[in-house]
Design a protein around this nucleic acid. Structure first.
Lengths: 213, 213
DNA sequence: TTTTGAAAGTGGTCTGACCACTAATCTTTC
DNA sequence: GAAAGATTAGTGGTCAGACCACTTTCAAAA
């Protein structure tokens, strides 16, 4: 390509502009006509760049109002990545195993960090005893507290695709196991926490929890 | 939105057209002017749809020649989202940490399986002594041998996004560490293998390997 | 036969013009 | 003065036409 595509430059320049001017999600970005003048290109070129970003879910356009930056949590990352990562007939085992990889890594990180001393564990214990405590909340809390947002995103994606093994409420029979996990985390005993966690999740994954449901 | 976006319809209609006419990767699709006439819309509308598909890597346009369907395996969604989502340093750390999560999990699985007895380790050791052995080959071999294709795929994508920490050749100084890892794997000593692996990779990630390069 | 170059066709870009819609402003009315 | 309505400016959505840069094709010239 002797001359690089103009609209690709626009995409990069807009990314820089968003960063420099500290435009936050939900904020309005300059109008197409303004951008065209500022970047010294035709409006149609601006539009080609914008439509690409819109299809990616990075921006949102509203006729009569303007163009807005999308909340990063609403990006189509999940759906689009899914079409790439999970395009082949992936066995569910791989999905679950990969989820487990991220979950145990999260526990490992938490046990090795100050997060193990947070009061959140005590409150989790209390919520556990209450009714209507969803299994997924427990695991998600672990993923969030590990502090790795990317890992969390991947975990969400896998959960969405692979069918959520943590669907449903925590049954009374599960509580002792979960409390053991919490205790081990507070004691920064990663080995025990992971062992108990795997024991709990493997029952859920193998569907041996019919008795609980 | 009272009226749905036109260019989104174009995207769907083109997908249908591609399927109906059995257009395969590498084939040429009708010109912009033809599409505009056939779908009864302006050429600029066609272009907005095409640019979206091009940015996703679904089609490839060559000035003077035409527009062509691309190999599905060459999609570039990943790099794009990366430039928007993974801009700050924190996320870059997350990428490396997440890569490490998958790598150590791979070692763990290998040590616990029959893969630890494969002759591939001996051949790896030999290639290690030869010249021009790329670091990435070593890690990729681990990922492949773990047998989790999904984890492997995620690892590939992360490597692509976050800048490859395993770029470059293995330096003579690194060989003892790598051989230790191999030996530990063959002895199914996951703990030692992971510890040595983390020692090796952390040096690479922190850029403390300037001495080696 | 080989070479050349003109022509046709393609994507790349710009301009200007409408349309549909929204939100702010102004005007009218009570 | 306040509320309701009408106006207006600004926005994205779309179209038509015009060039440009480039590639391929093919007929004319050597």
């Amino acid at each position: 390509m002797s001359q690089p595509k103009r609209y690709l430059n626009i995409v990069s320049e807009m990314r820089d502009m968003i960063r420099e001017q500290n435009i936050r999600p939900g904020d309005r970005i300059p109008s197409e006509r303004e951008l065209a003048e500022k970047l010294a290109v035709g409006r149609s070129t601006i539009r080609e760049a914008l439509r690409s970003l819109e299809l990616l879910g990075l921006i949102e356009t509203r006729r009569g109002e303007g163009t807005f930056l999308t909340d990063p949590r609403k990006h189509r990352l999940v759906e689009l990545l899914a079409t790439f990562i999970l395009q082949d007939n992936k066995t569910l085992e791989d999905v679950w195993e990969t989820m487990c990889i991220h979950e145990t890594a999260a526990i490992q990180v938490i046990c090795a960090s100050d997060a193990s001393k947070l009061p959140v564990w005590e409150s989790l214990r209390e919520r556990l005893d209450g009714h209507e405590f969803i299994r997924e909340d427990f695991v998600r809390e672990l993923m969030v507290l590990s502090g790795n947002r990317l890992s969390l995103k991947i975990w969400f994606l896998l959960k969405q695709y692979g069918g959520n093994p943590y669907d449903g409420e925590v049954m009374p029979e599960e509580r002792p196991l979960l409390k053991n996990i919490l205790q081990a985390i507070e004691q920064q005993d990663a080995e025990t926490a992971i062992r108990d966690f795997k024991a709990w999740s493997s029952v859920l994954i193998k569907g041996e929890n019919a008795q609980w449901q």
